[in-house]
Design a protein around this nucleic acid. Structure first.
Lengths: 340, 340
DNA sequence: TCATAAATTGTTATCGGTAACAAACAAAAG
DNA sequence: CTTTTGTTTGTTACCGATAACAATTTATGA
């Protein structure tokens, strides 16, 4: 492995001078600089980041903790993060919690041992506050992504779950639906709470009753057809006047599970029942726009989130909290139909 | 930041003893070990990976270079990689080249400066061989993923593009299609070459003629509706007896672009024209299985690829080359129709 | 009981950079 | 042609961990 010492010897200068050239210090004689740069090129030297970080106390590495990169919503976020990070000279360590707080703890350990400069994280639940504390104790900046957690003081980038839900539910009501069931995410996730609030308040604002039976929960995860089917069976077995004519799915995965289950139960969307959800269902949207959704600007979430994080990292003391709430965009498509 | 020196002082031993406890060395008195472990827990010590890597010459970090994490095919690969890597105690640095070899060079630099132990890479083109050389010069192991490159000697995990193409084309022929157009990926990517070969040979084996006009190229990238539309316009303007009744799209993105363009041109799939492609189109498949595809075990690609890489990393000298070729699975669905 | 082997712990140097200070050299001023 | 100041380069110590060796303690056997 070639080091500054090799370069130094090759260029007949001291290692320190090499270091100065690498870091574009002032006060280097032009001829010396050229000599060193030639040596660097000829020997193919690339600085050792580990050694650097040891003195500089920064690794130029950031952690990105998501629930599942396989969800297009998160892969887009990851993409946004990656692009901005690289642009600003940072590397990105990535990991998937699967909404599992034990995994989350392990990944936080990993991030701490890597001494990342900051972590951008989609917390699994309110319990994640402990992990935030731990990171901060290790002097690692934290920005939350997609969700907040109780008691968190700091920067975050989230979508407006309340607003999006309100708009979707209102859309259903405008389409003549009165019996709207909510299949929500886990109540210990802030987005689920906000979506529940949006759902309940919008119903109330429209003078509609909320049946206890209309509320159920699934994980925000992939492939839960089994549980989804049970929920739907239960919903569909309600008396005719209480049987839901529309379903609000709290995210894209839940919506896909729901529609699959509905089909298996012999119902078709939107003819028999309408479905709306949060987050775009890709790449279906490019190919055959079907889902009525509250689309969130996922790439933008990533870009903004990592930007905030980098700002925090680069000016530690930094001032006021940056809490960005990006509004969703409602797309009315084929999964909802007017009740006649 | 708490270091072994802090632990040492707190536990009244030498730093070296602390190091020994951390690394589970033998010959530590039980009482000493407990004392140190208690100190570690109480002070919340986590080893500094950078410092470690300086002496050990390994970072326990691996690089994953993909073309675009936004493509579900690659996000699944990334997921497989991540899972196995973490399981084996490695971190993963991730990056997206967008099939751009300049970006690729930058990311390779990044990986070298991070002194990753190995890189798992989807090469952008045959030119990537230079980058492989560079990595190796820096003593970094390389495993190729999804594609090979000319002149490469080493491990790789790829799909059987030839076989998959053959089966898809044969399926089209069995369905009565004689005029099958190929919209391929870039010829400097091995999968595209193999798919072209599979296409041409299967046609020949069936005594079908190949029209020059049937061959065209797109990037393996997202959102190329413009170019796709041009290609399709040209194809559809051929005389009736030469006008394709089926299209072989070299990957999922190309297929989606093609179908979108076809629709804009007033044609529907499969009624007017059949379409097949490589790689699953998710999550459509869960929701409404539509595409006839050669599905590749993406997660498995990732898992196997990173496993090979880790093996190489952990026993440098290692023996014979591991060249894994995983067969695709053909799913015949609704995007193809029998010609009557 | 004392020498010797085995187990346990400590010291020093090092990995590849850089900060802080010191030295050498060149240019400007008297 | 000195002196002074400013430029440029070099030395030393350190970041946090560990390998290699040294020292100390404990156990074993004659």
């Amino acid at each position: 492995m070639v080091t500054i010492y090799d370069i130094a010897k090759y260029a007949n200068v001291s290692p320190m001078t090499v270091s100065r050239v690498i870091n574009n210090s002032i006060n280097i004689k032009a001829t010396t600089r050229e000599k060193v740069e030639r040596a660097i090129k000829e020997l193919g030297y690339i600085p050792n980041a580990a050694a650097r970080s040891l003195t500089s106390n920064q690794t130029k590495t950031l952690g990105l903790i998501l629930t599942d990169i396989t969800n297009p919503y998160f892969s887009k976020i990851a993409r946004g993060v990656e692009d901005v990070a690289v642009e600003k000279g940072y590397r990105v360590l990535i990991s998937n919690t699967d909404e599992d707080s034990d995994k989350e703890v392990n990944y936080i350990d990993m991030m701490i041992s890597a001494r990342v400069d900051g972590v951008l994280i989609t917390p699994t639940s309110d319990k994640t506050i402990d992990q935030v504390e731990r990171l901060r104790k290790h002097n690692i900046q934290v920005v939350l992504l997609d969700r907040t957690i109780e008691g968190f003081e700091g920067d975050y980038v989230i979508g407006d779950s309340y607003l999006g839900t309100q708009q979707l539910v209102q859309h259903l009501i405008d389409y003549g639906h009165q019996n709207i069931a909510l299949i929500n995410g886990p109540a210990n996730v802030s987005t689920a709470r906000e979506r529940a609030r949006g759902y309940l308040e919008t119903l109330k604002q429209n003078g509609l009753e909320v049946y206890e039976h209309y509320l159920s929960e699934l994980d925000y995860k992939h492939a839960q057809e089994g549980k989804a089917k049970e929920i739907l069976k239960r919903l569909l077995s309600l008396e005719a006047d209480k049987c839901p004519t529309a379903i609000f799915a709290a995210n894209n995965f839940i919506a896909v599970s729901a529609i699959r289950s509905l089909r298996e139960l012999g119902l078709s969307v939107p003819d028999d029942i309408s479905v709306v959800c949060f987050d775009e269902v890709e790449p279906i949207v490019y190919f055959d726009p079907f889902f009525t959704v509250a689309a969130q600007p996922a790439i933008e979430f990533g870009r903004v989130g990592i930007q905030l994080l980098i700002e925090r990292v680069e000016e530690k003391e930094a001032g006021i909290r940056q809490q960005v709430i990006l509004p969703p965009v409602i797309h009315i498509r084929k999964s909802t139909m007017k009740r006649s």
